[in-house]
Design a protein around this nucleic acid. Sequence first.
RNA 1: GUGCCCGUAGCUCAACGGAUAGAGCAACGGCCUUCUAAGCCGUCGGUUGCAGGUUCAAAUCCUGCCGGGCACGCCA
Length: 577
Amino acid sequence: MKLHPFVRIENSLREILTGAGAKPAAGQVLVERPRRPEMGDIASPAALRLAGQAGCKPLELARQLADQLVGLPEVAAAEPVAPGFVNIELTGAALAEPAALALADRQRFGRPAAAGGSVLLEYVSSNPTGPLHVGHGRAAAYGDSVARILKHAGWQVATEYYLNDRGRQVDILAASLWLRIMELRGHFAGPMPAGCYAGEYLREVAAGVDAVGSERGDGQMIDVTNLPAAADAAALEVVHRVRQRLGDRQLAELAELAVGRICAGMKQELARFRVGFDNWFSEKEMIESGKLTPALDKLAAAGATYRKDGALWFAASRHGDEKDRVLVKSDGAATYFASDVAYHLDKYGRGFDRYVNIFGADHHGYVARLRGFIAALGEEPGKLEVPLVQIVALVRAGQRLKITTRGGVFSTLAELVDAVGVDAARLFFVLNRPDAQMEFDLDLAVRESAANPVYYLQYAHARCCSVLARWGGERSSLQLDASALIQPAERSLLVELAWFESTVRSAAAELAPHLVASWLYELARKLHAVYEGEPIIGAPEPQQRARLALIAAAAGALATGLDLLGVAAPNKMERRT
RNA sequence: GUGCCCGUAGCUCAACGGAUAGAGCAACGGCCUUCUAAGCCGUCGGUUGCAGGUUCAAAUCCUGCCGGGCACGCCA
């Protein structure tokens, strides 16, 4: 496959620099996007960075680079500029190559030649104790876009959802469900005890249980008075009393039922949000298949655990964490962290080159101990990347909303999507860097949905389609004739199309979908500029066919870019009333 | 108190250590007899929280302050 013209120029620069005695690092970026168009199509700061190695002044090295670059077939002009940049202008033919690819095969457009390795991407992984809320939506949109971008950049991607389907929270969920069943049958009039799951969704689950004619829940209501004051303790006491009434088995069945229903709801909501997972990894199944003990044994064999006060500890402080962590409590129960040790051992055993765990920012304290035991086990902690997705603060009627699952007051992803639509929500979540805190004003999102950036991008695509439809010919008959595209706006659009591949590479390396969003915005802007300029249909040949080809290329590029963000590229926009 | 993230235009945010810090929203003024005006053009808006340091070059890296968020359990 022919390399991207920018890459070919970069490779040539590397050769020239090496010949001049400089030693550019393997991955060092040698070309970049100039700030202003009069600085050329691409620019190289290489002379500034490497003049020392070559033993001359930056501007002098830049002159050498420019002299040799003009000899390349891709280069129309190359100019050294103080303090040591080289500004490069490409030939029309070279510049049109990426656009031609967008026209001919938009699936390959922006796909780097170098293949990536394999990556396991874990994200969302919210506890199956309630519907997904808006914060999970941000993680879902971010994670799914990262997955799409990595795939496009040539990585083999597997996505995974880690399901905490056992443990205390699930017990509390089961007991809460039972209370809702009792409520439905008139044996309990609420309110839900503190610490239990009070959300409306459990009423719906309870109604479903009734509908299938379950016997569970028959018998007498438990006493829910005289509970401890603390919410956690109260919930545990409720679990205890329900367990006494029903027995372990029935409680476990209720838990399975509740988790099953809630998971089904989450999957449905994620599907509507265009997010799917290759694998749902069940903590419960992992534990039941006996993976916990060998994992802890392995840590012990590595000399990283010890016993103290009747508990089993991991010496995390020896591996970069601030303190040691309990693996098995003095009552014999394994902690959540112990499960995570087993889970990550399982992950690393699957032999991926790269592991990405997308965490909510409230879990940032967890990263050090995760890397700690990976190091303790002799694995490579650098293979694990943990992008943190910051909390989304919801604002409604000028007030910050508290998002809590147990309290029953929260804003679900479903509500948000109902209000603003999948496209707007998905784009909104990947518009910014994930580690920036963001406010989501629900009123504004609804009221201003027409001004949402998503419409700007989609409208650009629809405009292209509209022109092509009016023309009525076959897109496959079009060819990019760069010699007929001489208007500044046209050239500017070609340049923008050419930058997509390096945008994809950066976005994949930095796990940064917002770079794709920014690129799309620039592309749309330049498309609109072409549209507003010279007429397309009715222009004399060869301009008409060349412009149509450019428009078709832009349409393909917009569709490909939007697809990487999970946003639809409609052929037409319904006119607002 | 300790640790992590953040601080850029009135608001929401961009900017691989590079050249004159950019968009959108908001405000104001223009452009539909013509391929969709969900668009385009223009105006207004900045001591990049503060102070030092490193560098040919700092919003970006380092140190210290100030401000905001989050986390600091034999919870998950």
